[in-house]
Every structure is written in structure tokens, then in C-alpha cells.
Write a protein that binds this DNA or RNA. Structure first.
Length: 864
RNA sequence: GCCCGCCUGGCGGAAUGGUAGACGCAGCGGACUUAAAAUCCGCAGUCCUUUGGGCGUGCCGGUUCGAGUCCGGCGGCGGGCACCA
């Protein structure tokens, strides 16, 4: 390498600047600041401490850091914290597989990941760091839970769980594979357990209506949440049994289509419905059918291909509006969890009902006439009609519109006292009990005389015992020799601790609030949370669009109800990033290969780095361990530096889309860091003296480029168009290179020094280390990290010449240069005189002349 | 099946209804070099009869002086979903 080419030594520079930021506490903020600055809370979804960061983390935390650094430069007091979502199953799996204690495994992972994150140069206030598995955090969570319990927001309820009968353990959905337990391979059963639920459904109306106020959320996330909450209007009604069965003399049904009651042909109940159980007691065939429904998993793939099946009970119900009798079936497509677990079937106007009716030869009676169809022509083939229309075959409803009929039917049901109009919600209460060790203990005690008794607050945190074993299936807390045996805090009698722990979604439902006062001896400090909440910009993956965000919205409302916070909504702005993808590779034996095992030969073919064997290049897809198409961020940072990794991940494409990680792209980004460094290095540091009174020629051009770039980059950062900000900085680098060739022009030294100073500040959110390195060379006061964002000089943004497009009949025929806001007559004369335009207009009659100031001229010609 | 999103050069992408393809990657040409790497400069949608013209933002139509952008329909790709009564 030539000695005279300056090179940027990121290996020395990056740790140096990180240490400088650290020693000056650049990113530290107070719980309740008194600096009078406007606040800005930037948060990225905190990571699960798996042990290594992956490219998704790099993308997530780079995006957040750009926002944090930019807002800081704009004069905000920015809180940008980091923590660890540290409870969860992988730690228990590690314990079972490798004999490591989950706590040890987790804390080691945290240490490793913290070191990796720090190498990225993130502007994080590390003093706020916490892990959810720390008793200092989960003890506060236990307090929150007790306050919710007192407020009636938590209660015990029976609910269904996936049960592995061989391992005698509850399985998470992800542990059920094709209906079998992932370890034992046993067919999973559904089992009823008494569990803690949080009453999120109490807030269903508000969680839905408040979505409209979340203006800075992606539309599709709001839509997904709205669909998940699932408000529907309909009727709840009961059908009398023709012959009562034991206790059951009627069946309760929810319907959104009471208007189609006259088209009813059957009634169907879920396999878990009490009537199904009753029938199954006496009828082995029914019992077999019910068992068959129950053994089937609930995974989507199964449901997709599921054929609609039913079992006729031989019983009948009476339709209260028509007086007709209809058969009662047990059907596999009826969900016990939704509505009342029973429905009435109107095959003419519902696809599932129609499929079912065709299969079992049930009646299909149309009752809604589509607009424009004669009643005589109305027929149902294999498609139902589910649109609006006029009622037919419907007694007193005949002739009404479907809308009117809906109201009239409900009115009649109410008059008869057999039903009423209701609003129904799809959202279900949140079951938070998990039969696991590595989670936050639920702080209650079960006493035979007193029932459920809260653990006294003075005894919190209720710690997990460390001395647990994972040598047998089930919950180690349950097996622990002493932990669960306590005396009742109320009566003193022998009692048992709750051995369930919380769903880890509970941990992540309030961590953003805890960051405001992470060391407090109470869950939240009002002054601190009321200052910082809501989070101004939350950034994370779309995969959390529903559960995490909805639970957090609920939790914040619950905390508001118990007086812990003022805000109802946790996240004012939400940005959902795309995935990081990569090509995948297989060798000729079909074994997946890591990118570093593969290289591109001269002819472009991909071959194995060591064997030289051909490699099959597969799809570009989300990085995953199983496909081995992962790239280790640590290795990238070691080879190219954090700034390069950050720059590339921002430059490739808009951040909401999936990006493809490519070696070529990283190399390109690396080259740019070097180029920019050289361009800055080539500007003499000699004092440029007083600012010249005026600039002409290349110096003026450079200054205009610099100030236009300020505007362009600012706009791009404000709108999350980071790839555009990068592109504008590439352009600016080209302008700097241009200026280098005109270095001897008057005013140039001053202009170049100004330009480099502007460049350093504009790149600083994206490449903070390089920004410092460049800036330091000119002896600028202080760190770029503490410097204000540059302001564009309006005088330099004024354009003195605009190029107008001249069109003839909408087609470009030439361009003309004029002063801004040139009067119409003058512009039109110039445009018509442009040689090529002149040619296009020759012999034609112009019927209209369009002039949009500073934009365009268009001549419209007569004739065809 | 339902809901949502997307579709622009070889590739990633840019473009308040106003010169489509900024910027980058890959490519090509040149300078420098004994040579290579690195670097620097330049070219580059496509076709043709090339001082110019035709075509061109998935396809078909519409609105407009003017459409990648707005509207209607169709197709393809991707994502979400708990068969939601």
C-alpha cells in the first residue's frame, strides 16, 4: 500500500471514541431532568439474551441509534436505554441439555451480548440497564401484579392447556409439533388447569377505539390489532331443546346474522360443548367423534386442510321465530372459545354452513335476494350469497333489507324474551400462568381455609430458589423439597405457594416504563414515568405487531387504573423494520453451508472455499440457523468496523422492507468510509482565516451543495428514509471530490473546511466514530456527539437558475434555463424558440399553453 | 377462504400529479502502475434510419395539458389469521 494514501484505522478509532463518549457520560439522562430540554424517548425492543447478537439486532439497534443521535443533535434530552428480556424457555432447555443453571447461562449470555452491543457504538444510557430475571426487576413486577389483583384485573380461571401425557408437562404452542410433544413425541392432549388470567377483555373497547389516536403507528399494525380485538355486533339467543336433555333445556347461540334465522337448517355445537359431553356419555360413536375433535392439534396447517365433519346427535331444537324444528349436530369447525360454542347454520348465506349442509344433505333455503336478481332465479350452487339484499322466505321480515331485518329480528327475539342484541369480542382474556421455573414467580399462596392469599408486600421480591434440578420432567418449583411449603400469611396454617410463573410477555409489558427509574424501590416513580412516557419512537420487528404491543397497551392502562402512570398509551410512534435476509447455500450432498464456507470463483460460480466443489445457491431468505445463511455481526465488525456495518445496513433499502445482506454491499460501505476519510484528510488543516465576504465559482458550488445536503439529509432522517439520507451523503462526497480538483480556487480552503465539518455532523447519526475522527482533525471544540445539528444558510438554498422541461403534447422536447419565477410570456417565448420544440410545433396549431412556474411548459396541439 | 401490502434497469432502490431511473452494487472504458491491488476519472434503460426519434415503472382501461404517482378492473409475488358463527 502506498504510504501517502491516508487510511482510516477503525480498529483504533472506534474503541477510542467509545471511551471518550463514556468518560463524558454523553448519553446519560436523569430520571427527572431539570435541563429544560424537550424530552425524546427512543426505544428498541429489548433482546432475548441468546448469547450472540444477530443481524436483526444490528439493524434494530442501528435504526434506534440513528434516531437517538439525531434527536440529541436537534436539542432533545434523549433517553435511549437497553435491557434484557431474560426469562424464558431456552434457559431451561440449556439446563436440561447441558446441565447449566438457567441463571448462570442467562447472565453469561448477557455479558457476552452486552460486549457485542457496545462494540456497535450505540448511544445508550447503560446506567439504566436491567434484566427481567433480576429480582430487583421481577420483585417490582410482583408488586404490580398484586395491585392488579386488588383492582380486580387478575383472577383465577380454568382454561385449556397443551398437555404432554408422557413428560407430564404443559407444552407451549411452539413445543407442539404435528400434534405431538417435541421431546416425548406423545400425542398432545388438551387439559383443563386452573390458571391466572389478566382481564384484558375489560379494556377491549378502549384498546380498539384508541387505535385511531396512534397516528404514528403503521396502518397495518393498527389493522392487525383491530382484527385481533375483533368487535362484532349480533344477537345472543337461545334455542329451546325439543326434548330437554338432563339439565340442558336450551342452547345459547351467538350470531352476527339474526336476519337469516328463517334460513336456518341445523344447529351445531363444539366438541367441548356441554351438550356434546352429555351426548357422548351415552353414545360411544359420539364419544369417539368428540375425542377425535379433541385430539387434533390447533395448528394452522391442520385446520387449513381440515374437512368439515359433524356428528348428528338425533336431538332437535326449535327456532323461536319460525317454530320449526332443526337437527343438532356436533361439528369440528365450531370453536368453544368463540361466542357460546354453538351456532345456527344458514347454508344459503355462509360458506362453512353450506359446505357442511352439502356434505350431510341438509336443507339450503335462500332468504336473502341479491340486488338485481329475481326471486324465481335465486339458486344456491356451491357458493353462498353473503352480501346485502332483500329478505325472502322470511315471514314478517319479507321485503326488508338485510340491515333492517337484522334489527327487526333482534327486536322480535327481545319481545319473545329469547334473545337480545349484543356486541361480541374476539379478544380473549390473557392467561399468564406458566408451569415453568425460569420466570417471575406469581406471588400468591394457596391456603385450604383462606383460599388465595397474596404474598405480603414486605416479603417481596419473592425469589426463585437457586437449588433446583432439571433431572425430571415438569416444573422444578413444584418438585422443590421446601420452597412451596409455607404457612398462610392470613391464618398461619400450612399452605402452598403458587408454583406457576408468569408468561414472559408480562415482563416485556412494562419494561419501557421501568427504564424511567430502573433502580427505584417501587415499580415506577410517577415523576419519572410521567416525564418520559410515552415512548416517542419504538422500533422493532413486525412479528410483535399483535401480542407484545397489545399486552403493553393493556398493561399501561392497567397501571394507569392502579395509579402508577398517567399515560394510557405506551408507544406514541412505532416503526416496524424488515428482516435481514441472505442467500442460502448447499453443497452437492444437500448440506447447508455457511456464507463463510463459500466463495465466488472468477467465472462467478459459487464454490466451496476448501474443497472447491460446486455450491448450489438457494433462495434469499430470512437469516436462520437451520439454513446456515447467517452472518455473524461480531466478525463483520472485526473485519470492517461498526460504522461500516451500520452504514451498509442503513444504505441498502428502506428500513421497513426486508434487506439482503451481501458481502459486496459491506465492502462498498467500507470503501465509502475510507473515501470519506481521505476526502476529509486531504483538506488542509491550516487556518482558513476569516470567512470570505463572497464566494464564486467552485467554492460557491461546494457551499451550495453542502447546505442543500443539510436540508436533504434532515428531511430524510425525519421521515425514516435512511437509505435516502445515505444517498444524499454519497452525492455530497462526490461534490467534495469535485472540490478537491478545484482546490486552488478562491475561497476554497474555507469552503472545504466548512463542508467537511458539515459532513462530519451529517454522518454522525449513522457513522458516529468516523464523524468524531474527521471532526477531531480540525480541532473542533468537543465531540460531535455533543454538537448541534448543522443549520442550512437560506441564502445558499436560493436557486438563481431553474431548468424547465418543455413538453409538446406531454412529451419532453427540450429544456430551457430561466431565472426562478420568470413571467409566463417570457418563458413561453423562450420555450417556443427552443430548436427542438420549434421543430415539434412546426405546422401545428397550439390550442393551449400550460406553464407551471419553475416546473414545466406544455404545448397542447389541435387535432387528433 | 378472509384481511393487508408490494410490483420501476442486471441488482438494491430514487422520484410534493410536472425532465422516470438520483445514489449505490455489479459491469464496461480510461488514467496511474513494470504488473496487479487500491485509488481517481468517465460510460451505462431499451430499440432505431442517432444534431433526432420510437418504446418503457406487472397487464387492461379511465381521469388529466401531463400518471410510476389518482380511480376501476385483472394478474403475479409476499405477509398476517384463532374455520370467528
Amino acid at each position: 500500500m502506498a504510504a501517502d494514501v491516508p487510511r482510516y484505522d477503525f480498529r483504533a478509532a472506534e474503541p477510542k471514541w467509545q471511551a471518550a463518549w463514556n468518560s463524558l457520560d454523553c448519553f446519560r439522562v436523569e430520571d427527572v431532568p431539570a435541563d429544560g430540554k424537550p424530552k425524546y424517548y427512543v426505544l428498541e425492543m429489548f433482546p432475548y439474551p441468546s448469547g450472540k447478537i444477530h443481524m436483526g439486532h444490528v439493524r434494530n439497534y442501528t435504526l434506534g441509534d440513528v434516531v437517538a443521535r439525531y434527536k440529541r443533535a436537534r436539542g432533545y434530552s434523549v433517553m435511549h436505554p437497553m435491557g434484557w428480556d431474560a426469562f424464558g424457555l431456552p434457559a431451561e432447555n440449556a439446563a436440561r441439555e447441558r446441565g447449566i443453571h438457567p441463571g448462570r447461562w442467562t447472565w453469561d449470555n448477557i455479558a457476552a451480548m452486552r460486549a457485542e452491543l457496545k462494540r456497535m457504538g450505540l448511544s445508550i444510557d447503560w446506567a439504566r440497564e436491567f434484566a427481567t430475571c433480576d429480582p430487583a426487576y421481577y420483585g417490582q413486577q410482583q408488586k404490580l401484579f398484586l395491585s392488579m389483583l386488588e383492582a380486580g384485573l387478575a383472577e383465577r380461571r380454568e382454561s385449556w392447556v397443551n398437555w404432554d401425557p408422557v413428560d407430564n408437562t404443559v407444552l407451549a404452542n411452539e413445543q407442539v409439533i404435528d400434534g405431538r410433544g417435541w421431546r416425548s413425541g406423545a400425542l398432545v392432549e388438551k387439559k383443563r388447569l386452573s390458571q391466572w388470567v389478566l382481564r384484558i377483555t375489560d379494556y377491549a373497547p378502549e384498546l380498539l377505539s384508541a387505535l385511531d389516536g396512534l397516528k404514528r403507528w403503521p396502518e397495518r399494525v393498527r389493522l392487525m390489532q383491530a382484527n385481533w380485538i375483533g368487535r362484532s355486533e349480533g344477537a345472543r339467543m337461545s334455542f329451546a331443546m325439543a326434548e330437554p336433555q338432563g339439565e340442558i333445556d336450551s342452547i345459547e347461540v351467538y350470531t352476527t346474522r339474526p336476519d337469516t334465522l328463517f334460513g336456518m337448517s341445523f344447529l351445531a355445537v363444539a366438541a367441548e360443548h356441554p351438550l356434546a359431553s352429555l351426548v357422548a356419555e351415552h353414545d360411544p360413536a359420539a364419544a369417539a367423534f368428540v375425542a377425535d375433535c379433541r385430539s387434533r392439534g390447533t395448528s394452522e396447517a391442520v385446520l387449513e386442510t381440515l374437512e368439515k365433519k359433524g356428528f348428528p346427535t338425533g336431538l332437535e331444537v326449535v327456532n323461536p321465530l319460525t317454530g320449526c324444528r332443526h337437527p343438532v349436530w356436533i361439528a369440528n369447525f365450531v370453536l368453544m372459545e368463540y361466542g357460546t360454542g354453538a351456532l345456527f347454520g344458514c347454508p344459503a348465506h355462509d360458506q362453512r354452513d353450506l359446505d357442511f349442509a352439502r356434505k350431510y344433505g341438509l336443507a339450503v333455503t335462500p332468504v336473502v335476494l341479491p340486488p338485481g336478481v329475481a326471486e324465481a332465479d335465486m339458486a344456491i350452487g356451491d357458493k353462498p350469497y353473503d352480501g346485502p339484499g332483500l329478505m325472502i322466505n322470511s315471514g314478517f321480515l319479507d321485503g326488508l333489507s338485510t340491515d333492517a331485518a337484522r334489527g327487526a329480528a333482534i327486536g322480535e327475539l327481545e319481545r319473545l324474551g329469547v334473545g337480545k342484541g349484543v356486541v361480541n369480542w374476539r379478544l380473549r382474556d390473557w392467561g399468564v400462568s406458566r408451569q415453568r421455573y425460569w420466570g417471575c414467580p406469581i406471588p400468591v399462596i394457596h391456603c385450604d381455609t383462606c383460599g388465595v392469599v397474596p404474598v405480603p408486600v414486605a416479603e417481596l421480591p419473592l425469589r426463585l430458589p437457586d437449588d433446583v434440578t432439571f433431572d425430571r420432567p415438569g416444573n422444578p418449583l413444584d418438585h422443590h423439597p421446601t420452597w412451596k411449603h409455607v404457612s398462610c400469611p392470613a391464618c398461619g396454617a400450612a399452605a402452598r405457594r403458587e408454583t406457576d410463573t408468569f408468561d414472559t410477555f408480562v415482563d416485556s409489558s412494562w419494561y419501557f416504563a421501568r427504564f424511567c427509574s430502573p433502580l427505584a424501590e417501587e415499580p415506577l416513580v410517577r415523576d419519572a414515568v410521567d416525564h418520559w412516557l410515552p415512548v416517542d419512537q419504538y422500533i422493532g420487528g413486525i412479528e410483535h405487531a399483535i401480542l407484545h404491543l397489545l399486552y403493553s397497551r393493556f398493561f399501561t392502562r392497567a397501571m394507569k387504573q392502579t395509579g402508577a402512570v398517567a399515560a394510557a398509551e405506551p408507544f406514541d410512534g412505532l416503526f416496524t423494520q424488515g428482516m435481514v435476509t441472505h442467500e442460502s447455500y448447499k453443497d452437492l450432498q444437500g448440506k447447508w453451508l455457511y456464507p463463510e464456507e463459500v466463495q465466488r470463483r472468477q467465472d462467478g460460480m459459487m464454490v466451496h472455499r476448501e474443497t472447491g466443489e460446486d455450491v448450489v445457491v438457494g433462495r434469499v431468505e430470512a437469516m436462520s440457523k437451520s439454513k446456515r445463511n447467517t452472518v455473524d455481526p461480531g466478525a463483520i465488525i472485526s473485519r470492517y468496523g461498526a460504522d461500516t456495518a451500520r452504514w451498509f445496513i442503513l444504505s441498502d433499502n428502506p428500513p421497513e422492507r426486508d434487506m439482503e445482506w451481501t458481502e459486496a454491499g459491506v465492502v462498498g460501505a467500507y470503501r465509502f468510509t475510507q473515501r470519506l476519510f481521505r476526502l476529509a484528510e486531504n483538506v488542509p488543516v491550516a487556518p482558513a482565516g476569516e470567512m470570505p465576504a463572497s464566494f464564486e465559482g467552485p467554492a460557491r458550488i461546494l457551499r451550495r451543495a453542502a447546505h442543500r445536503t443539510i436540508v436533504a439529509v434532515t428531511e430524510a432522517l425525519e421521515s425514516f428514509a435512511f437509505n435516502v439520507a445515505v444517498a444524499k451523503l454519497y452525492e455530497f462526497a462526490n461534490a467534495l471530490a469535485e472540490a478537491e480538483r478545484a482546490a486552488d480556487e478562491p475561497g476554497m480552503l474555507w469552503a472545504r473546511q466548512e463542508a467537511v465539518g458539515i459532513a462530519a455532523r451529517l454522518i454522525s447519526p449513522m457513522m458516529p466514530h468516523l464523524a468524531e475522527e474527521i471532526s477531531a482533525r480540525f480541532g473542533h471544540d468537543g465531540l460531535v456527539a455533543q454538537t448541534r445539528w448543522p443549520e442550512a444558510d437560506p441564502a445558499l438554498l436560493v436557486v438563481d437558475q431553474v431548468r424547465l422541461a418543455v413538453q409538446v403534447m406531454g412529451k419532453l422536447r427540450g429544456t430551457i434555463e430561466v431565472a426562478p419565477n420568470t413571467p409566463e410570456a417570457e418563458v413561453l417565448a423562450l420555450a417556443e424558440a427552443e430548436p427542438n420544440v420549434l421543430r415539434a410545433l412546426a405546422g401545428k396549431r397550439v390550442v393551449k399553453r400550460v406553464y407551471v412556474v419553475n416546473r414545466i411548459v406544455n404545448f397542447v396541439l389541435a387535432g387528433s
